[in-house]
Write a protein that binds this DNA or RNA. Structure first.
Lengths: 375, 375
DNA sequence: TCCGATTTGTTCGTATGTATG
DNA sequence: GCATACATACGAACAAATCGG
């Protein structure tokens, strides 16, 4: 039998997970050995091996005749180190994505100025990775956590870990999106308004057939879509369902471009403008439309999102929604320090959260509609 | 059976006594399990129970296939904190610079797979900031450091900190550049060759007046400049001193563009090609030349460096030197873990360092010279 | 206080997998 | 490739402590 899949290790992990999720609290009795035998369909020996190691690692303690109980890890392990605990964890979905470095840097500079260390973690937008990281943070020694939620559009399977963080009095703040059930301190752009601004700008320029292309497995994209729809409603414009293109992390490389290609084929009611999930997507689409001989913005206007480096470096400078990257990072850092200092208990009146008002930076990728130049 | 006379406890006591009597010394092999079974006339399970507890108490350690050995208790006591030390510091000059996130991510993914935490620090390419960070790392609890040297071209005022890290047996590896005095384990691109490739490609295309624009306050830029000169030498080409533009971090926003502007004014012996310090610089220059009505690559060829996201997203796709970003990050991570495991002492024969062979990715920003199209 | 059910503690036997030299 | 050593896993039995009735 392979070591990595050792049964006793699975049992260990399971028990440890339950502790970290807060399902078993200090001095609470865990299942008896015979119960665990049934549950995992293993021999008593195997159960005892698992429990034995957890006892040695300080997670549990045993009392003959009474049972096995959850140990109080804080006292034994942390008390000595705790005073010097100046570690902050920053958890992002994609470190290398183009706007994150700026956010991280904003946070890092503020935190290091205040004597904190910054550890970074990467979920790759995957729940199991997020779980692993939360597990690690909970069993290590962090004073606070700045986290961007994974797959923020769906219900979160790791909710228990967040609740346990609250119980363990480890403050956390969320950036860019949030799990609303938790009502966390959060820092994010008003994405509904952002999507609204993107769309309204084009409507004001006379556009009527506006395609939107949004990634909808995170809350950001879903909210931007809401804003896109809202702008149409407010202007009493008919909304063509065909003009709404959505994609997920999994198919982000193919679907947006394929679907837009399909739309541009039909010359009747052809779109005159496109709002995009972010600047990077715009640039990829610009490549494609250039090959097709479509001119931007004369034939087709584009609005980006994030106002990233790309928006300024591209040939056609992008009209884009300004994302307060660096400021957001600093604000999140300031808030987490405040929470740490206040021992995670702030006055009800003091709302640390911030919803940033988006603004549109108008450059050269959008122009008034010109019917004579229709594609 | 009474607990006080538990067989496994007797075995424990016997082994412990032998160690304390000096009959078994550090790293000496004790009797195998089967020998102990015969000696004490007990089952294997009982022997394992005794040994298991002694392992947990730090008296022994086991090696599968080899045997069970007497542990060095002095060390284990001192390094009991170090056993759990799974923190790696990554120190970069500019976190948000466009290629760093990819390097960091390469390192982070490998390190987190191996159970390490990653802390990041940012020197902003300033010595005093580097000093602050090194101070902090030395006074905290890091198992290893991956660092990009600050101002790598000049003599380093923080050398003592590096020497002290060696004394404290904190392994470090350098990326992208190195302080040669230290002869560190390092991972970097062969920048001389990179600059050579940039230039040689243009010479091969028939260009003779080639401008180079390099940042020379780091070793990367200085080496690329060397490569640029070397390419001219090898091809027996006259080198026009006016064609060498250098700049520093402080004036990177103005000097490159101003100097190039100056050069292009003079119609006599006007350059036909430009090699740049990195892709980002190329894109900024592309903006400027576009305004001037200069076409790329017809009138003026450009070669970038790093093969970044920008090279593929720009309108004119950039010919650029490939930087092994992610691979370099992983390699550095692998090396630091190896150094930690080997307690910073590797065999002289085992050279962990790696100098990456650069390659040129040819895209559309370079073309054969065409005298008829001279600017 | 004692009983009985439950729970952990100790010990035996056996078998097979995996790493080392 | 082989013997040896440790690693994982099953089954069974009895001892000792705890707890509710």
């Amino acid at each position: 039998m392979g070591y990595s899949e050792a049964k006793y290790k699975k049992i260990k992990q399971s028990i440890k997970t339950n502790i970290l999720k807060g399902l078993i609290t200090t001095n609470e009795k865990i299942s008896s050995e015979s119960q665990l035998m049934k549950e995992f369909k293993v021999s008593r020996h195997t159960v005892r091996l698992a429990i034995g190691e957890l006892v040695n690692e300080g997670w549990l303690y045993r009392e003959q005749g009474a049972g096995t109980f959850c140990a109080d890890r804080r006292e034994s392990n942390l008390s000595s180190i705790n005073e010097n605990n100046k570690n902050i964890a920053i958890v992002t979905t994609f470190i290398s994505e183009y706007i994150f470095p700026t956010i991280i840097r904003g946070a890092e500079s503020y935190l290091s100025e205040h004597g904190y260390n910054v550890s970074i973690f990467n979920t790759n937008n995957q729940y199991n990775q997020e779980e692993k990281i939360l597990t690690q943070i909970l069993s290590s020694n962090y004073a606070g956590v700045i986290i961007e939620p994974t797959h923020s559009a769906s219900a979160n399977p790791n909710l228990k870990y967040y609740l346990n963080m609250e119980k363990e009095k480890i403050p956390y703040v969320m950036i860019n999106a949030m799990y609303e059930e938790l009502e966390p301190v959060s820092f994010s752009l008003d994405d509904v308004k952002g999507g609204f601004l993107q769309t309204k700008h084009l409507i004001d320029l006379g556009h009527r057939d506006i395609v939107c292309i949004y990634k909808t497995d995170d809350a950001q994209g879903q909210n931007r879509l809401k804003g896109y729809i809202k702008a149409h409603r407010e202007c009493n414009l008919r909304l063509n369902p065909k003009n709404i293109i959505t994609y997920q992390t999994e198919n982000e490389h193919s679907k947006p471009i394929d679907d837009l290609k399909e739309l541009l084929k039909v010359k009747a009611d052809c779109p005159t403008a496109v709002v995009c999930y972010n600047d990077q997507l715009v640039l990829r689409l610009l490549d494609f439309v250039r090959e097709e001989g479509i001119k931007v913005p004369e034939h087709l206007s584009f609005v980006g999102y994030d106002d990233s480096l790309l928006a300024e470096l591209s040939e056609v400078k992008l009209t884009s929604v300004i994302h307060p990257k660096s400021e957001l990072g600093r604000d999140a850092a300031r808030a987490i320090i405040r929470l740490i200092q206040k021992n995670n208990q702030i006055d009800p009146g003091e709302d640390l959260s911030k919803l940033y008002e988006p603004q549109l930076k108008i450059r050269h990728s959008t122009a008034p509609i010109d019917k004579d130049l229709a594609i």
